[in-house]
Computed example of a mutant assay.
Amino acid sequence: MVTILLVDDDKYILNLVEVHLVEEGYRVYKATDGMQALNLMKEHSFNLAVVDVMMPFMDGFELTKEIRKMYDIPIILLTAKDQLEDKEEGFASGTDDYLVKPFEPKELIFRINALLRRYDKFDDDTIIGIGRTKIDKRSYEVQVGDRTLLLPLKEFELLHYLMSHPRQVLSREQLIEAVWGIDYDGDERTVDVHVKRLRERFSKLTDDFQIRTVRGIGYSLEVKKR
């Protein structure tokens, strides 16, 4: 599961951004200052950090420099300032992107997704193909014939896992652990909702595969015989 570190001394901003990122399927850890953020990074593995510039004890520029010394992850700086000098200092400290407050959460999500694709920090970078359907974990794109689809993160990861295990009966517990992580404490019906969305998306696009319900257990991706 993609894990993001949010660092901001404004708890309203922290909670607002967390809600939107969790809805996108990301795991989120929050810190209110630089020292707390560095301690969290010693305990957990992160794919990306979103860091506010104006914080007590250690500002965002210094925190970015410290992160750069030890970790190779993308960093987005948040600031209320829109001065060229601040942007210059931000990029000099090692940030990958810069977003000025106030901002739309959706814009932050777009930037996060773009940076994750650029850093390509995923274990499985192979392209999986079934018939005319191709799924690429590196670009997070699904190709059906000459049509390219960009799915919501969890739908993509669920489809990728199912296509990686064709004709296998996978329980809801297995799918939850593989896609949402072992720490996920939500309802297993989440799997059913995401499977329904995938069926609705692909039923009219291709007959290369079908996601079959296995009563009382889970699902199996069935491949059409040619």
Rank of each mutant, 00 (worst) to 15 (best):
P56W: 14
R68L: 13
E88H: 02
M55S: 06
E66D: 13
M54N: 15
I73E: 04
L77T: 01
F61D: 01
K65Q: 15
R68P: 13
V50F: 10
G60V: 04
L84V: 08
E85M: 02
F57W: 05
P74Y: 11
A80C: 04
G60E: 03
M54S: 12
A80I: 01
I67T: 06
D59A: 14
Q83A: 12
A80E: 05
M70P: 00
K81D: 11
I76R: 09
F57T: 03
P56H: 00
K87N: 02
L63N: 11
D86T: 00
E85G: 01
K65R: 15
Q83R: 09
V51Y: 09
L63G: 04
M55E: 11
L48T: 05
D86P: 03
K69V: 03
M58A: 13
I76P: 09
P74N: 05
M58N: 10
K69C: 06
T79Q: 05
M70Q: 14
F61E: 05
M58L: 13
D82C: 00
I76G: 14
E85C: 01
I73D: 12
D59R: 03
E88S: 06
M58C: 10
E88R: 12
V53L: 15
L63P: 12
F46Q: 09
L84C: 00
R68D: 15
K69S: 15
L77R: 05
T79M: 07
T64D: 12
L84R: 01
D86I: 00
M55I: 00
L84H: 02
D82T: 01
K65L: 12
I76M: 07
M54V: 14
L77H: 00
N47Q: 15
T64I: 11
G60F: 04
M54C: 09
V51M: 11
F57K: 10
N47C: 11
I73Y: 08
L77A: 10
M54I: 04
T79Y: 02
F61R: 02
A49L: 09
V53T: 03
F57D: 14
V51K: 12
M54W: 11
I67S: 15
L63T: 07
I73G: 13
I73R: 08
T64K: 03
T64M: 07
N47A: 13
A49Q: 07
L48V: 10
Q83K: 08
T79P: 06
F46N: 08
Y71E: 11
D86A: 08
L78V: 04
K65A: 15
E88F: 07
L77Y: 00
I75H: 08
E62M: 10
K81A: 07
K87R: 13
M70W: 07
V51T: 12
M58Y: 05
I67M: 06
L84I: 00
M55P: 02
E85T: 07
E88D: 03
K65N: 13
M70E: 13
L84Q: 04
P56K: 08
N47G: 14
R68G: 14
Y71C: 11
D86G: 02
L78F: 11
M55C: 07
L84Y: 01
D82M: 03
L78W: 08
N47M: 13
